[in-house]
Amino acid sequence: MREFRYEKAIDPAGAVALLTGEPEGAYLGGGTNLVDLMRLGVATPDVLVDVRQLTSTEVEDLPDGGLRIGAAVPNADLAAEPRVRERYPLLAQALLAGASGQLRNRATTGGNLLQRTRCTYFTDTTMPCNKRDAGSGCGAVEGLHRNLAVLGATHEGPTSPHTCIATHPSDMVVALRALDASVRVLGADGERTVPIAELHRLPGDDPARDTTLAHGELITAIDVPALPWATRSRYRKVRDRASYAFALVSVAAALDLDGSTVRDVRIALGGVAHKPWRATVAEDALRGGPATEAAFAAAAEAELAAAAPLADNAFKVPMATNMITRTLVQLAEARA
């Protein structure tokens, strides 16, 4: 592990000032991803600015009925928060589906958002990886990619500097994407709000970058807007074992019915792309239409029409289609 200086600031602005002046530094939250990546030699910061106790650990009510989640709220506490369990079941379920009890106790909300988009080649410094070592190529595209992206990936072959098929492993962020959350960010020039849709990025021609944040910007809170019909929502995750594994495919969905018609719907997918994937094609196809299994399946198939799977992850396409369909059927039945 590279040597680093450990710094604490007295407030968030102080932390931003500290890190802005340290181009190779990093913020330390719970450390559950960063410390591991440092030990593996994948992350090599020369300064750590500890922000775990700097931002809020509170969940506050917003005037519109939504919630403001302090960036330092541990994942476990957020999952247990009664207002989250009551208003946004899909978010509580997503949090509980992630990692282990030990990791959820330590990991923060802001840190969960900023865990690295990754794959096993990213964490293996002996392998080529455009995300870890820009321009080195991609070992996964012709190697082990069973659990990697089928939507929005760049695959131009193993030697291209653009190829990246890594997935964002967070469960929480899939639910936040379905809920249209926004992220409050403090930078050297002040505060700004980033819609969660714009926080994470697809690999495009720069797979090294996971997010749109600039160096030194600090997430201070996450706002979840009110969505009264999210009381009927669900997060489903399919994985290789029953617990403590990343998603093969996950679905966060909420359904609002007017009789047997879909008044509104939210669908986001995990495990399929470089960022949480909002299924807007499926949502648009469903809004105003019948809440039937056939309509759900047709919408899911329309969403997955853009999928470009590789040899060993093609199973994710029917899996995602089936999971969207099944989750919406369950929500429709729960509504009746």
Binding site: Y6, D50, R52, Q102, N105, R106
Partner: peptide, 15 residues
């Protein structure tokens, strides 16, 4: 750690 279970391998001692 303060009563909550954590993986001590991922906690830096200084924190």
């Amino acid at each position: 750690l303060d009563g909550r279970r954590v993986n001590s391998c991922l906690v830096l001692a200084v924190t």
